[in-house]
């Protein structure tokens, strides 16, 4: 699943993740595309606080940073 959080400021990209994580299967990934500079540290911190796995950063086609999370529970 990919979420578009372009233009959404902290803490909204993390809220988007939290609202949709249950829609992917355990073991599957969800990716949030976010241009807010706070998303990079906060997605990782959210994974730590919620017990999910941070699976890394990539780029969307337009160059927007994309952060991928694996649902662990």
């Amino acid at each position: 699943m990919r979420l578009d959080a372009r233009g959404r400021r902290c803490p909204l990209p993390i809220l988007d993740l939290a609202r949709h994580i249950d829609e992917v299967a355990v073991g599957a990934t969800i990716t949030v595309e976010a241009d807010d500079p706070a998303a990079r540290p906060d997605v990782q911190a959210w994974c730590r606080m919620r017990g999910h796995e941070y699976a890394g950063e990539s780029r969307a086609e337009d160059g927007t940073p994309a952060y991928t999370v694996r649902r662990l529970h």
Partner: peptide
């Protein structure tokens, strides 16, 4: 140190370097 409270909209470089949550 949250990004929305800085004029540059960047989160605190200290919190980022620590890997800490920057929101709120």
């Amino acid at each position: 140190g949250s990004s929305c409270t800085s004029s540059t909209l960047e989160p605190s470089h200290v919190l980022v370097a620590m890997g800490a949550l920057t929101s709120g």
